[in-house]
C-alpha cells in the first residue's frame, strides 16, 4: 500500500476521532462547532489524498474538496447566527441550558 496515502488517511481518522470527542464532550456551542470543523477537516484530508494518490487525473476530487470547504463556512455562519440569537435571549451559549430544544 502507498505509505503516503496511508499516512494521510491516518491523519484524517485521527482528526475525525478528536472532532467526535469534541462534539460529544463540549457543552459550549462555539467549542462544539470546533469539533464539527475537525470532523470536516478529516473528510477534507481524505478527499485530497484520494484525489492525489488514486485519481490524480480527475478534478472532480478537488471539486468535492471545494464543496466540503463551503459546508465548513456555512456551518460557521449558521452556527454563529444561532449562538447570537441564543446569547441575546438567554445570555449564554451553554448547551446544557438548551434542553428545551430536545424533541
Amino acid at each position: 500500500m502507498n505509505p503516503e496515502l496511508l499516512l494521510a488517511l491516518l491523519t484524517g481518522a485521527a482528526l475525525f476521532g478528536v472532532g467526535l470527542y469534541g462534539v460529544l464532550s463540549q457543552t459550549n456551542l462555539v467549542m462544539l462547532m470546533m469539533g464539527i470543523e475537525l470532523i470536516l477537516a478529516g473528510a477534507l484530508v481524505n478527499l485530497v489524498a484520494f484525489w492525489r494518490f488514486l485519481h490524480a487525473e480527475s478534478y472532480a476530487g478537488q471539486m468535492f474538496v471545494l464543496i466540503v470547504m463551503t459546508v465548513m463556512a456555512l456551518e460557521m455562519a449558521v452556527g454563529f447566527a444561532v449562538a447570537t440569537a441564543r446569547f441575546r435571549t438567554r445570555g449564554s451559549v451553554e448547551m446544557e441550558e438548551a434542553r428545551e430544544l430536545k424533541g
Binding site: 488517511l9 475525525f16 476521532g17 467526535l20 469534541g22 460529544l24 464532550s25 463540549q26 459550549n28
Partner: peptide, 20 residues
C-alpha cells in the same frame, strides 16, 4: 466546559479505530 467525558473518549477512540 465539558460533560460525559468517558463516553466521548470511547466514541472518539472507537471512531479512530474503525476508520483506521
Amino acid at each position: 466546559m465539558s460533560h460525559q467525558k468517558r463516553l466521548s473518549l470511547l466514541a472518539g477512540l472507537g471512531g479512530v479505530v474503525l476508520v483506521t
